[in-house]
Design a protein around this nucleic acid. Structure first.
Lengths: 335, 335
DNA sequence: TTGTAGGCGTTATCAC
DNA sequence: GTGATAACGCCTACAA
């Protein structure tokens, strides 16, 4: 069995109360006693049982992280940033992969609740405001990441999606494109909506109407991107430029491009949202709207811990995107 | 506050014992009683507190996952597979990113121990056999993944690294290369050692001596791959073919190739270990030794839960690799 | 069939 | 300065 505080107490002929105090409130115990305890701890290899402590304190020293797709490098990076910061503070990370399914996210939320996590970082997958609200009412800080859950008191770390989409659109327009299409994300997600809106708006301001048949929708997963691109390429007058609203759907769209024998950017100019290693390495390197991934994860984790440690102010932080022009975009019909 | 078993008991005028029984041992309670309880559970929204249960049972319904680099898509996929299976069984996953640092892995191990996890899936980062042994002695099943920790009773899911490296070497030899180099992984890791051994052996069998200056070592991270490749390219007679022992170091090596102005495969043939999306998309597409990623994660998780649920047999499962020939390899000096 | 009570490991309150 | 004790929520012998 494991060594408990009783073993340490026995070792030094003190009560468990004193041992606990020596460990948690060093000032409340005379230095010599404290040293004796510390020595005994070293000797026995005692480590406080996290479960016992959690039960007593009403919260576990761990945080929940719900991502929509752990295989998307964007969320893998986020996970790393969050885990880094949690580990530094002695917290654990319970990871849940919602796989873009709201039911799974809800299940995860319940699970985290019953585990008394100290806080939750959450990539919303759909409508789970009810469960979130309960958690929040119980005093569990919540930080939305990437998307917005609709929960009132949640903090959030987001990216300026409208700006990003606008950058993509303006770049394409500047190159002289007129038949510009987009593969948009799910419209029940803020990222899906905002990227489409920013894109449409930029086009309109340039006097270009975004045709209905030039807007295809996907679910932010690879397969849907491929299908959407295939539909676009099947049009009588296919677009000469395409803005794809996330990296996974872009991976799928690329498959369709290859399949159709089109050359990039001669036959089709491509702009993605969110950078990824493969985007830099592919041929030609992909023009993208990049997000400050590390900052997103770090800020979310930092805000979460600030609030866990007492600062009540939930903040909504919006970060800027950056257009990185590489070689997948060019004037229509030119190589 | 949260709703506890007491609230449910009050609701139906029963003792908490009966409620607990109705929930955990349906057969030990008359059906009508059970129904009343279930109804009350629904009404109150009661969910058992995982912490209380864990304390009582001496183990939490969660497993630990220690990976060496969560941003490496290989481990991100593993994480997904493990989380999938855990979630299906009602277990949570505590994720720890060791970042290839043994101290962090050890810290993580202690953390998981104090959290009374039911089992651990573990990508060894170095020598943590002592802590692992304690865990194991406490009855916590451990499954090594990808590498081998040296722990006696651990199960393991591995890949045939020697075979994989051999496939790479033979492919290069078959193409006619003579000056073949490798960027090997850390030699304190089984993957690092075995891939180098298999590679060397295949060369020797073909009558090619692997020169000392043609073996560079990295730490399985991108930056080290770049530096290693730079050293290789600075040789008076640089190699015409290069086998890189993992995908991250390959990413770095690619940077060095670009920087040096070499063309692939005309000036240098490249074979990687482990496939990645960018490997397929890059130009030219990368020849790789692929690992059955999903199977690795799934088998590890399945073995872990089998053992959690009582089957004592730790197994060592070794999976085959597969050479995928794409366009980054060709005869020396030919395009 | 159901209830009472003990205890898992911890921290904190209250005596001494 | 230190110790005894209660409490957190749960499950399960044992008693009724």
């Amino acid at each position: 069995m494991s060594v408990t505080i009783h073993d340490v107490a026995r070792q030094v002929n003190l009560s468990i109360a004193t041992v606990s105090r020596a460990l948690n409130r060093p000032e409340s115990v005379p230095e010599p006693t404290r040293q004796r305890v510390l020595e005994a701890v070293r000797l026995t290899g005692y480590r406080p049982d996290a479960i016992g402590r959690s039960l007593r304190e009403g919260r576990s020293r761990s945080v929940g992280l719900i991502v929509s797709d752990i295989r998307n490098p964007f969320y893998a990076s986020i996970t790393k940033a969050v885990e880094d910061i949690a580990q530094a503070r002695g917290y654990g990370v319970l990871i849940c992969n919602a796989d873009e399914k709201p039911e799974r996210a809800q299940e995860a939320l319940h699970f985290l609740a019953s585990h008394q996590v100290s806080g939750i970082i959450h990539v919303p997958t759909g409508e789970n405001v009810a469960v979130l609200g309960e958690l929040e009412a119980r005093g569990v800080p919540i930080v939305d990441l990437d998307r917005v859950s609709g929960l009132q008191n949640a903090g959030a770390v987001l990216v300026n999606n409208r700006q990003g989409a606008r950058q993509a659109a303006e770049h394409l327009i500047g190159l002289g494109h007129q038949r510009i299409a987009t593969i948009a994300g799910p419209q029940h997600l803020t990222t899906g909506r905002e990227r489409l809106e920013g894109f449409r708006q930029a086009l309109e301001e340039a006097g270009i109407r975004l045709l209905k048949r030039h807007v295809e929708f996907g679910d932010f997963r690879e397969a849907s991107g491929m299908r959407a691109a295939q539909r676009l390429f099947a049009l009588p007058k296919p677009p000469t430029a395409l803005f794809v609203a996330n990296n996974e759907m872009m991976a799928g769209a690329l498959g369709a491009v290859l399949e159709s024998g089109r050359r990039i950017p001669h036959d089709i100019s491509l702009v993605g949202f969110d950078d990824a290693r493969w985007a830099q390495y592919m041929h030609p390197p992909l023009t993208v709207v990049a997000q400050p991934i590390d900052a997103i994860g770090t800020l979310a984790a930092e805000q979460l811990f600030e609030r866990i440690e007492g600062k009540p102010a939930a903040r909504i932080q919006v970060l800027d995107t950056q257009l990185i022009v590489r070689a997948s975009t060019g004037p229509p019909g030119a190589s």
